[in-house]
Amino acid sequence: MVSDTLKDILSGTFGGIAQVLVGQPFDIVKVRIQTAPHGTYNGVLDCVSKIVTHEGPFAFYKGTLMPLMGVGACVSVQFAVVEEFKRRFRHANEARFGTSHLSDVQLYTAGAAAGIANSVIASPVEHIRIRMQTQRNGEFRGPIDCLSRISREHGLKGVFRGFFPTALREGHGMGVYFLTYEYMVQRALEGKHITRAELPTTTSMIAGATAGIALWLMVYPIDVVKSCLQTDSLDPSKRQYHGSLDVIRQLYGRGGIKAFFRGLEPTLIRAPFANAATFVAFEWASRNLSKY
Rank of each mutant, 00 (worst) to 15 (best):
157 K>D: 15
287 R>V: 06
175 G>S: 04
37 P>L: 08
206 I>D: 03
155 G>D: 02
111 G>M: 13
43 G>V: 13
220 Y>K: 01
109 T>L: 12
153 E>H: 08
274 A>N: 12
221 P>V: 11
246 D>V: 08
56 G>R: 11
79 F>V: 05
128 I>G: 10
7 K>L: 04
98 G>K: 02
166 T>L: 01
60 F>S: 00
91 H>M: 11
209 A>Y: 03
270 R>Y: 05
29 V>C: 01
271 A>M: 08
24 Q>K: 03
228 C>M: 13
187 R>N: 04
193 H>W: 12
168 L>V: 12
149 R>M: 03
23 G>T: 07
270 R>D: 06
285 A>D: 06
32 R>F: 09
277 A>V: 09
77 V>L: 10
100 S>N: 07
262 R>L: 09
159 V>G: 02
163 F>R: 00
108 Y>H: 11
161 R>K: 14
274 A>H: 09
267 T>G: 13
127 H>V: 12
256 G>D: 15
286 S>F: 10
261 F>V: 10
91 H>N: 08
7 K>D: 07
210 T>R: 00
92 A>G: 08
64 T>D: 06
97 F>Y: 13
84 E>F: 06
78 Q>A: 12
76 S>C: 07
285 A>W: 00
245 L>H: 09
275 N>P: 05
282 F>A: 03
1 M>A: 07
210 T>W: 02
197 A>Y: 08
9 I>C: 14
55 E>Y: 06
253 G>N: 06
79 F>M: 07
121 I>S: 00
77 V>I: 13
39 G>T: 15
179 L>Q: 14
167 A>M: 15
94 E>W: 14
85 F>K: 10
138 G>A: 02
208 G>R: 05
253 G>V: 04
1 M>F: 02
290 S>Y: 10
